[in-house]
Design a protein around this nucleic acid. Sequence first.
DNA 1: ATGAAAGCGCTAACAA
DNA 2: TTGTTAGCGCTTTCAT
Lengths: 351, 351
Amino acid sequence: MTRNDRPETLRRATIKDVARLAGVGVGTVSRVVNGMPEVSAASVEAVHNAIEFLGYRRNDSARILRTGATESIGLLVEDVADPFFSLLNRAVEDEVVRQGSVLLTASSSKSPDRARKLILTFCSRRVDGLIITLPEGSDEDYLIREHAAGIPMVFVDRPPQKVAADVVLTDNRGGAMQGVKHLIAHGHRRIACITDRAELFTARERVNGYRDALIDSGNPFDPSFVFSAALEQEQVDTMLGRMLADSDPPTAVFAGNNRAAVMVIGAMRRHGTLLAMVAFDDFELADIVEPGITVVAQDPQGMGVMAMDLLCARLQGSQAPPKTVTLGTRLIPRGSGELPVSGIHLPTVLR
Amino acid sequence: MTRNDRPETLRRATIKDVARLAGVGVGTVSRVVNGMPEVSAASVEAVHNAIEFLGYRRNDSARILRTGATESIGLLVEDVADPFFSLLNRAVEDEVVRQGSVLLTASSSKSPDRARKLILTFCSRRVDGLIITLPEGSDEDYLIREHAAGIPMVFVDRPPQKVAADVVLTDNRGGAMQGVKHLIAHGHRRIACITDRAELFTARERVNGYRDALIDSGNPFDPSFVFSAALEQEQVDTMLGRMLADSDPPTAVFAGNNRAAVMVIGAMRRHGTLLAMVAFDDFELADIVEPGITVVAQDPQGMGVMAMDLLCARLQGSQAPPKTVTLGTRLIPRGSGELPVSGIHLPTVLR
DNA sequence: ATGAAAGCGCTAACAA
DNA sequence: TTGTTAGCGCTTTCAT
């Protein structure tokens, strides 16, 4: 027994100790600790004194075991250090804290295996609910079981394949469309699309939106202008070079996420050109470059809040059919997306 | 009773249910679940089947209550969405996950009151240990009590005033010195210092380092070149303007953190000048501007790992006197810090 | 190798 | 208003 190994002085006071010292029963102590009304002033006083003296603090493990409510929420994202998810994390935290619960957080690191372990740990901890960004390629059977066992879940950023639960997404397709149409509105016809691996739900959707915008506005969709692969600087450099060598080269770029945007900036510098650009997903300091980067902003905080809202509804017993909420995007013009068709060639000194 | 209100179908299976179905005692089930050796193959088989059939998952609340070990760590930072702390968070998480524990995270939002509530909640949850960035102005008495009650704590980024516990810090003073000396080495004598409120431990230390570097190298320390206040763009603009109007104006700037750096960049643009600059604290995309921002990088991951190391030592019963570990910084030259004394005036088109 | 039983600290029902 | 007590689900002796 872990606790009893310790010297007596390091055993934390229990409700029993308090009761004994205060000269009341444990029930009374419990009532005082939980601020229940039907206790005499004298008892309250005595209990408070004892608590103060003993440095008593309720043991929530015992409380949880007894009541069955853990007042905790589990959050699994791809990486808590990723700006997008850290913002989501914070928004969820604020909701969780507001209702007096605690938040267990973890990062999947894109590993389905790590995700499974973490989620199952959360389930063993009997979290009241789970907010999950599932890594690509996850087996979902275990989720179905836990979900069926009564743990409410809401999925964020990407939809699950099999679990029938609430989902919160960004309107990736619509947002991409919005961004590309912005470029078209500024006169661009030949627009490159640089984005992440097509295996990723979000990347796929954004390419779809890119294509839709082009077709919608009567422009040709040229697959050779789409780079959808693991983002690496060299590849992007090469790819952009190839596109620029086209007989009808791009005058603008749609970057599918901010890593892509950064690489495109690098590639443009190396090629000594400055194409118009709109990037999906806002980022801090998008305006310290000249021109500032025009972005299609997602709303990570909004996603977090919405996820918690949906979760809370389930916690209150809602049996409504699973809902998928899609949050809109916001285009923030900062300069790069409003550049004219005639490309600007940077003076050498500033490249 | 919360649990028994629920329909029978939604009550999760317990160890008893498994035992009954498998035709063994609860002790045996427990042994199987925990992978203890002394169980017959037949029992293991039967138990596994029952577990599978019932969708049994151990209830950690009960386990925790019994064993007294929560296998959880509480982390309180200023804001989980802040890049510095989110990196620290992730590093801590990885250590925590590696040893099979869970991580409770929360943001103080610079509020001593919120911090107190959160920390006391963690204490009620009986976390095994606590990693804390305490907001400026916190009362620490409650921490002393909890610490004395046996909850190990390590403080990160800023030292506590009263609690005698382990601390992990960045060498703010040394780092600032390193940055300023880098500028001096590139010929600068007149160096401005733009940083946050002097109430903040880190800002204060960095100003100290700035002063030390100047004095060490025989340069005068001119208080009128130090701006240490709440960082707002307008103020920084005005302040820089005033400094530039000096009879012996600055040729370089030491920015005390990355918010300061961004504002200095803005101010320089507005004043149509480009001074050399070194900024404290690295940031993503510090190299997408031209020139890239030379920074004195901290090591948030290293701090997280170190904090967990110290915590684990305490968890294993170390009674050594409290240690303060100071992590060194790393200067990353990217261009802005290597600019010569002769200021560059940007061509208008690029301002 | 295994079952029975005590008990972790708490809450809530019940009795007084 | 209050004390007593059962029991939440688990681990861990102690017999067998």
